[in-house]
Simulated scan of single mutants.
Amino acid sequence: MSNSTLDNYALNNWMAATPAIDTLSLCELTLPGTHNAGCDWKASYPIIPGAHWLACQHGSFYAQLHNGARALDVRLDFDSKGVEFGKFRFQHNGYRSSRNLLNLFADVDLFLQHHPDEFVILDFHELKDGTEPFDYRLFNEVMLRYLGRKIIPAGNMHLPLGELKKISSDQRVLVTAPWNIALDRTWFCRKIEHKWSGIGDTNVAELEKHIIEVLKSPPGEWEPWSLSATSYSVLGGPVDIHAQLDSWFDPEKSDWSEKCNIINTDFFEETKLVSYCRTVNIKKASNRIK
Rank of each mutant, 00 (worst) to 15 (best):
L6A: 07
P32T: 05
G38M: 02
G38Y: 05
Y45K: 02
P46A: 11
P46I: 08
A51V: 02
W53K: 10
L54T: 04
L54S: 08
H58P: 00
H66C: 05
H66S: 03
R70T: 05
R75G: 10
L76F: 15
D77E: 13
K81P: 00
K81H: 01
E84Y: 15
F88Y: 13
F88A: 06
F88W: 06
F90T: 11
Q91G: 04
H92P: 06
H92G: 04
R96W: 07
D109Q: 09
D109M: 00
L110K: 14
H115P: 00
P116R: 08
E126A: 13
L127I: 07
M157S: 09
L161C: 01
I167T: 12
S169T: 14
D170M: 11
V173S: 12
P178R: 12
I181G: 03
R190I: 02
I192M: 08
E193D: 14
L207Q: 09
L215N: 08
K216L: 11
P218S: 07
E221T: 12
E223W: 01
S226Y: 06
A229W: 00
S231Q: 05
Y232T: 06
G236N: 13
A243T: 15
Q244K: 13
S247Q: 14
W248K: 01
W248Y: 05
C260V: 07
C260G: 04
N261P: 10
I262F: 14
F268W: 03
E269N: 12
T271K: 00
T271N: 01
S275T: 14
S275V: 11
K283D: 12
R288A: 03
R288I: 14
